[in-house]
């Protein structure tokens, strides 16, 4: 337990080390980053090795460098890999938009408005993410099959437009609740109704939460193997995670090289989206401030 006096002492000692900590901090962050990234670096290096050397030469540095895994992996499946990237991109983009709209609406109601049975509905909302999906998948499949939605993107996208990702509702509820109520009241005094408050006050101040929602939805949808594999079975509809698994055959011969190469290709869009989203992630109250 640190006491305030400790803190004061710590502060007093601080200036002595002023220039050094910065460098030390950088070095620590870099060293730690390298450890974190080792598996990833191994994957990158393997993707440039001739396939038969991947397991024969397990080291990080390739003795032979080749682009074959990329060129072969790109065309190894029925369609070129770009085709699967596009399929994934469509589903992912729709999911991001859907989650942003539907979850923020629901979150605002839960965080700021009062209505009958609110606690019950909130518990139901949280409860809906507590059941392992393996047992709901069969009834769900039966339902979507009745809707004749198999082999369309609807089973993947429509639920998101209906705010079934309770995770994000809860996330935004928590963020909205960190905002002082005075903001809403000030808006109310200016004559703003609920909708106007929502759009003019809550949404702009919740940029970090929205960015988080956007980034996570993007990543999780992009990587979601399970439901995409189940609902999009036609080989023309496959998405990236499903396509990636096709390089592997647990009883026969796996194409590890192309799999690593295409994994890296498919990391591109998510990483790009993260970089872009990051800007909004840090543009919260801290920078916009209280108006």
């Amino acid at each position: 337990m640190a006491t305030p006096s400790n803190a004061v002492r710590g502060k007093a000692a601080f200036p002595l080390f002023r220039p050094a900590p910065r460098l030390v901090k950088h070095l620590l962050l870099i060293a730690f980053g390298l450890v974190m990234l080792y598996p990833l670096l191994w994957m990158v290096s393997s993707s440039f090795k001739p396939e038969e050397l991947i397991f024969r030469e397990p080291g990080l540095w390739p003795s032979q460098v080749t682009l074959d895994n990329y060129t072969e992996g790109w065309v190894a499946l029925k369609h070129s890999f770009g085709y699967y990237l596009w399929n994934s991109a469509v589903i992912t983009a729709l999911s991001v938009v859907a989650n942003l709209v539907a979850c923020s609406l629901a979150a605002y109601a839960f965080a700021r408005l009062d209505f009958p049975l609110k606690k019950v509905w909130f518990a139901v909302m949280l409860g809906s993410i507590m059941l392992p999906h393996h047992v709901t998948v069969v009834p769900q499949y039966i339902m979507f099959a009745k809707f004749e939605w198999i082999n369309t993107i609807w089973p993947l996208v429509v639920p998101k437009f209906l705010a079934t990702d309770a995770f994000f509702i809860f996330l935004m509820v928590q963020f909205i609740r960190t905002l002082p109520r005075e903001l809403d009241e000030a808006a109310a005094i200016d004559g703003a109704g609920y909708w106007k408050t929502f759009f003019r006050v809550i949404i702009p101040l919740c940029m970090p939460a929205l960015a988080t929602t956007g980034i996570f939805t993007f990543i999780w949808t992009w990587n979601d193997f399970f439901s995409q594999n189940l609902y999009l079975t036609n080989s023309d509809n496959l998405t990236v995670p499903v396509a990636l698994r096709q390089f592997l055959d647990s009883s026969g011969e796996s194409s590890w090289g192309p799999m690593f190469a295409m994994s890296i290709v498919s990391l591109g869009p998510i990483f790009g989206f993260f970089l872009a989203g990051q800007k909004y992630l840090i543009r919260g109250m801290a920078t916009t401030g209280l108006k």
């Binding site: 596009w86 399929n87 589903i91 004749e148 198999i150 082999n151 993107i153 999009l232 036609n234 509809n237």
Partner: peptide, 10 residues
């Protein structure tokens, strides 16, 4: 989306 995944008729 419709053009990308529209081949799913049964």
């Amino acid at each position: 989306a419709v053009t990308a995944c529209g081949s799913g008729d049964d």
